[in-house]
């Protein structure tokens, strides 16, 4: 029996996300089984199945490994940035630099689809009047 990869969408605007796989003889049966296996708790608004044999697999793990230090591509390569920014601000102040205009509005806070998992409003948006508007993200419940 063939293996079918199953992809779902939580909302219509979400990208297809892999949720698992089923074994089935044809697409009709695969859809049927996938619904029961992965979408019986309101996990999303749509799903799709793709024959594993139809997936174009890269299959070159050697080409995905880092050959040199690539920490600059990872979040962990940017720890301590707050301290650096504060140190730079202090130096700028000591050198006599004056901030004479307000911070630009943080547009992320104005975008209702920008959901923040930590529930915290962007501190940089303070004073923009829009702080906190994106804080109501709710994780989908399990079943």
């Amino acid at each position: 029996m063939e293996r079918w990869e199953v992809f779902g969408k939580r909302t219509v605007d979400d990208p297809w996300t892999s949720v698992g796989a089923v074994h089935a003889p044809d697409d009709e049966m695969a859809l049927l089984l996938a619904k029961e296996a992965f979408f019986r708790h309101g996990e999303g608004v749509d799903f799709a199945v793709v024959r594993l044999a139809d997936m174009h697999i890269f299959g070159r793990p050697d080409l995905l490994a880092f050959a040199t230090d690539k920490s600059y591509k990872l979040q962990s390569g940017y720890t301590g940035m707050g301290d650096k920014r504060r140190a730079a601000a202090t130096r700028a102040q000591e050198a006599g630099a004056v901030v004479d205009r307000p911070r630009p509005v943080d547009k992320r806070a104005l975008n209702p689809s920008h959901r923040r998992r930590d529930g915290a409003a962007g501190s940089e948006a303070a004073g923009s009047g829009a702080a906190g508007s994106g804080a109501e993200a709710v994780e989908g419940g399990g079943g």
Binding site: R60, D62, L63, A65, A67, T68
Partner: peptide
């Protein structure tokens, strides 16, 4: 290591 990236 460099040749590995070079292949890509």
């Amino acid at each position: 290591a460099l040749r590995r990236e070079e292949r890509y």
